[in-house]
Amino acid sequence: MRANKLPTEEIKRDPAAFTDRVTADGRFGRTAEAGRYRLVISRACPWAHRVVMTRRLMGLERAVSLAVTDPRQEIIEGDPHWVFTEETGSPGGVDPVLGIHALREAYLARDPGYDGGVSVPGLVDTQSGHLVTNDFDRLSLDLATEWEGLVREGAPDLYPEALREEIEEIGARVYRDLNNGVYRAGFAPDQRRYDDAVAAVFACLDDLEERLTDRRYLVGDSVTMADIRLFATLVRFDAAYHGHFKCNIRKLTEYPALWAYARDLFQTPGFGDTTDLDHVRIHYYWVHEGINPTRIVAAGPDPRGWLTPHHREELGGSPFGEGTAPGPVPEEERVPAIG
């Protein structure tokens, strides 16, 4: 959807345009190699955030470098695009590794005739400059399961085979009614479709509140892909979706179990230390002119609540299962500290 246009129809997400897979054995044609690929993201984007969390939890920071775009998009030939700027660490507005200003250049390097949308995350081959994939879900799963030999010692099992069916069952509901549901509400073209979307958002949150009242994590006794998928939306809920997308029946902070669960994850390495709430607020309020034509960026909410005690450890479980916590965030990837 054009961010600077008023919505005229219900938002629809196109399937990923490029879906090459990268694995340790190269069975799909591309082999996982340290230094070969660069992950282009926006810290505002929940779909990109899933991949960043997975990459950090698996300890792949040195194997796959990270490029961060500006939270404000630039209009190029009439369309908004993810671009590199001095403010996000790209001298002269050009990514120092890929040598490009806009992510769309990697799309066009892959397919000069491409005229579709450009989304983050994008995994780019540093040797050819070609986009490899913008399939955020498959990329997350592959980083969690297919990069053996490059992941850190003690990396958690984020997608246990015995739990995959349950992870995907919960993930389908969360995606439909919450991850994508907030967008359906925010970009609803009429009252009926807004009412339908926002009702589904809060029905899902109500069910998750009940599920998480007596269990620490969504599936099993440790963090899985189900938690990563949910956290990416929860951490943006009060900062963007509650006000900007009119999902304002309740705030996340009004759900005792969900709010404690979200704080538990935020304070777990890999979650809060990959979250930039300034980027979130700036992007949503500045880019979506059709919803917020003044581009005034909301000041709140106060992020310090994310650091308050949650007491979820009393429910048992351990965030990394039989694994260990990731090490410190690389200095060049640190997000602003809260407090």
Rank of each mutant, 00 (worst) to 15 (best):
11 I>G: 01
12 K>R: 15
13 R>K: 09
14 D>E: 15
17 A>G: 07
38 R>H: 06
40 V>E: 06
43 R>G: 13
53 M>L: 06
55 R>T: 03
64 V>K: 04
67 A>T: 01
76 I>M: 15
76 I>L: 14
85 T>D: 10
89 G>V: 04
103 L>Y: 06
104 R>G: 14
112 P>G: 10
122 G>L: 05
125 D>K: 02
126 T>M: 14
129 G>M: 06
139 L>F: 12
146 E>Y: 09
152 R>P: 01
154 G>N: 03
157 D>G: 02
158 L>P: 03
159 Y>D: 14
160 P>G: 02
160 P>A: 07
165 E>K: 14
178 L>V: 05
178 L>S: 01
180 N>V: 00
183 Y>D: 02
184 R>Y: 03
187 F>D: 00
188 A>G: 03
193 R>F: 14
194 Y>L: 11
195 D>W: 03
196 D>N: 12
197 A>H: 09
206 D>S: 05
225 M>W: 13
229 R>C: 12
234 L>I: 05
234 L>W: 00
242 H>F: 10
246 K>M: 15
246 K>Q: 13
252 L>Q: 07
262 A>V: 00
263 R>Y: 01
267 Q>T: 12
268 T>E: 00
269 P>C: 10
274 T>G: 15
276 D>M: 10
289 E>Q: 13
289 E>D: 04
309 P>Y: 14
319 P>F: 04
323 G>L: 14
336 P>D: 13
